[in-house]
Design a protein around this nucleic acid. Sequence first.
DNA 1: TACTCGTGGTG
DNA 2: TCACCAAGAGT
Length: 307
Amino acid sequence: MFAKPTIEASQALLHDLPRWLAAHKRDLPMRRDDVTDWGTLVFEIMSQQTPLSRVQPIWIDWMKHWPTPCDLAAASSADIIVAWANLGYPSRALRLKACAATIVAKHDGQVPLTMKELTLLPGVGTYTASALLAFRHRVRIPVLDTNIRRVLVRFLDGREFPPRSTPSKKETARAGELLPQDGRHAADVSLAMMEFGALVCTQLAPSCTGCMMRANCAWANSGFPKDQKRPTSQPYAGTDRQARGRIMKALRTAHFEGKNGLTKRRVLDAARIDGGDRYQPSRVYRALLKEGMIVYDEERKRVTLPR
DNA sequence: TACTCGTGGTG
DNA sequence: TCACCAAGAGT
């Protein structure tokens, strides 16, 4: 299922790709050496399913306001959700605050540096933990994001897409075995594969013409076979997610403008969208309350972001 | 395991 | 125009 690289393929992955990266590397403030562990962790969580171009300005502003876990743990949830702005999946903002609180409570304010401790933090999964250890601390550990997985299965296995939505143990093991022994070099290889997947070996329209990896690419050498089942794309228009987004945007705007929340009626109106069913507004409203994303003030009769 | 969780750019 | 996409995690 998961092929080992040939000598030539290994050479391409371990030497050609890092060299390519050096020539194409962007000077991102999130990658600078003086960024703290916490800054890196914030960046990785913001980057989950989110384009870097959208993350960069918000991350810069965010780190000025809340440079340490202690700062964020003490901040208002409402301010945090407003600062999260249009990054999407705003539950990540609350998880990031919970993550900060856990680091303060259980790790004396210092970001822990073991896979076990990291993945126990709210919002931190296998990818985020390994990315912090590899890119910030040069630990030799496989980093399997969607780009690296796609690059590896195309280049080594001749498949268009990874077989599962989440990496199996065998896939993770193969990715770990092919890394160079030196941690610093290994991190360069991972970052190069990630960037290469994002810029060249893309999901929809890879730039295979003139690709520097083509000679050893198993996918190219087998004629670019199309995968039968493509990754499931998620509809959005008319869904609960869109309705939730409308509510959160209305409350972010109200909070930003200094208003004391909105009436429940206004909130339910905001949730009415084309394609939604008649129960959708109240359904998503209740869900957001339950998740702690919004709060209802009984006395003032106002819906607000959580304090 | 499969499903749910936003948002705005893009070909 | 609109389906598809972008450094995953939680349940």
